[in-house]
């Protein structure tokens, strides 16, 4: 615990705390919400009262309750998309690194084109081709991340694959799969983690954007992105209906990014072993 807090530093600690709070809000929220997500409790756009702490939305639903219900979808969709992207992208990257030549070209060239496409375009094309919904969001966010992940994994794996211990494993005739899992994967976790922080942030951002634009989840579902979109017309009357979900997304995204940034800082240089100053012992 102490090691973790030292690794994070004050800013990272605050970020991590913020992430934990929002995660708790999103996961536990639906069980403690005073009202159902689609339940009308009064008139539309009523300012906060002692009954409805954050007021009501454009259909007269309790904003606090919808806020508590609306975090899960964003987290689940982001996780599903990234999980998919890491499975597919990671596999492609590893194979490309271990099978150079035509296999590598066949795998990586199309991905390079995909990498040049803005993530939003991937979403736009898929949503047009197969309609709106949660599946499209997961597919689009996943697809947008696959080329980047494949590249990071391939670069890291390539660097490791020429190391002595991998050569030794190859020379004793270990199977490719064993080399990938035993010799390479455990040694590329650092660059993968450094890259993952930004990926989580952008995935959250893209999922939120899709829902906000109405390309993903549909009303009357409670979702932070959707809430902002549907209540924008009442921004002047009842700003909390928009600001509360906006702040939640902001705190989550910023928290993740700050934490990841703190974790991947190279640390205080020369704070550690004095041996490093003299170039270590070799």
């Amino acid at each position: 615990m102490r090691r973790l807090s030292r690794a994070l530093g004050p800013a990272g600690g605050a970020g991590a705390l913020a992430v934990v709070v929002i995660l708790a809000l999103a996961l536990v929220g639906p069980f403690v919400a005073p009202h159902g997500a689609a339940e009308r409790v009064g008139a539309a756009f009523v300012a906060p009262t002692s009954e409805a702490w954050l007021g009501t939305d454009q259909l007269g639903r309790d904003v606090l309750s919808r806020l508590l219900h609306g975090g899960r979808s964003m987290l689940l969709l982001s996780c599903a998309a990234l999980g998919l992207a890491y499975l597919v992208g990671g596999a492609i990257g590893l194979v490309a690194a271990l099978a150079p030549g035509p296999v590598e070209t066949a795998l990586m060239r199309p991905l390079d084109v995909l990498l040049a496409l803005p993530p939003f375009l991937v979403l736009a094309v898929l949503a047009t081709g197969s309609g709106r919904g949660a599946v499209v969001i997961v597919a689009a966010v996943g697809l947008a991340n696959i080329p980047g992940i494949a590249r990071v994994v391939r670069t890291a794996a390539l660097e490791v694959s020429v190391r002595g211990w991998v050569e030794a494993a190859t020379a004793r005739g270990e199977r490719i799969a064993a080399i990938a899992c035993r010799e390479i994967l455990p040694n590329i976790t650092k660059p993968l983690l450094a890259d993952a922080g930004v990926r989580i942030t952008t995935a959250i951002s893209l999922v939120g954007t899709a829902n906000f634009l109405g390309l993903g989840l549909q009303p009357p579902l409670a979702d932070w992105g959707l809430m902002i979109a549907e209540n924008r017309s009442g921004l002047l009357l009842q700003p909390w209906a928009v600001l509360a979900p906006a702040l939640c997304i902001a705190v989550l995204a910023v928290g993740v990014n700050v934490t990841a940034d703190a974790l991947t800082q190279p640390g205080r240089r020369y704070g550690g072993t004095p041996a490093a100053i003299e170039g270590g012992r070799q």
Binding site: V198, S205, G208, T209, F212, G225, A253, V256, N257, V258
Partner: peptide, 12 residues
Amino acid sequence: AQALPEFVAATL
């Protein structure tokens, strides 16, 4: 700033 989605930044 990098972490904020555009629609959240714009709303804020």
